[in-house]
C-alpha cells in the first residue's frame, strides 16, 4: 500500500480564467460574444478583431437558435465580466461545444452565480459577497469554494 500524506487543503474547484488576453487559435470562422463586456483596457475584442474578421454579438443570454447552422471548424470567443462569461460558457457547453472551441477573456469580476441546494434556484450576487438571500426560497445562502464549470455556479449552504 502506498502511503498518502498530501497535506490538506485539497485542490478546490474555483474558476480559473486565463490571466492575459488569449490569442485565437486557427479556426474557419469565429463569433465574438460580449457578455458584460465594458471595453476596458483589458478587453480582448479589439485585439481579436485584428486577428480575425468576425461578427460580434452582444449577449447577456445567447439568442435562441444561436448555434443553429454553425459548422465544425467554427469557434466562439467570449469577453466580459466573470459571472456572465461563465453563463455563456455553460450554455455553449450544453449546446455541445468542446473546451477547445471556446476562448474566454475575463475583463472584470463583478458578479457570481450561486446555487441554492434547498430549492435549486440560482441567485446572482455581487462578487465577493459572504452571504445573500436566495431568489428562489429566501433562505440564507453562504458560498463554498466549490464551483461548477458545467453551470458556472458556486455551491452554497442554505439555512
Amino acid at each position: 500500500m502506498r502511503g498518502d500524506d498530501t497535506p490538506f487543503p485539497a485542490r478546490l474547484t474555483v474558476p480559473r480564467w486565463p490571466s492575459g488576453v488569449p490569442d485565437l487559435p486557427r479556426a474557419l470562422a469565429w463569433t465574438f460574444v460580449r457578455a458584460g463586456c465594458a471595453g476596458s483596457a483589458r478587453c480582448a475584442i479589439g485585439r481579436w478583431r485584428t486577428q480575425e474578421p468576425a461578427g460580434v454579438v452582444e449577449a447577456g443570454d445567447l439568442p435562441a437558435g444561436f448555434f443553429e447552422g454553425r459548422l465544425v471548424g467554427w469557434r466562439l470567443a467570449v469577453c466580459g465580466e466573470a459571472g456572465r462569461v461563465a453563463r455563456v460558457v455553460a450554455a455553449a457547453t450544453a449546446a455541445g461545444l468542446l473546451d477547445e472551441e471556446i476562448v474566454v477573456n475575463v475583463e472584470s469580476t463583478a458578479s457570481a452565480r450561486w446555487f441554492c441546494p434547498a430549492c435549486g434556484a440560482t441567485t446572482t450576487v455581487p462578487a465577493g459577497a459572504g452571504s445573500a438571500g436566495c431568489d428562489g426560497c429566501g433562505r440564507r445562502l453562504q458560498p463554498r469554494e466549490h464551483w461548477s464549470p458545467a453551470s458556472g455556479q458556486f455551491l452554497c449552504d442554505a439555512s
Binding site: T6, P7, A10, T13, G120, S148, P149, S151
Partner: peptide, 22 residues
C-alpha cells in the same frame, strides 16, 4: 449535492476531498 454536480467532471466533483488529488 448530486444536483449541483450534474455535468461536472469526475475530477472537479472530487475537488473538496482531502488527500485525493496530490
Amino acid at each position: 449535492s448530486s444536483t449541483f454536480s450534474l455535468g461536472m467532471s469526475f475530477s472537479d466533483l472530487h475537488g473538496p476531498i482531502p488527500r485525493l488529488h496530490g
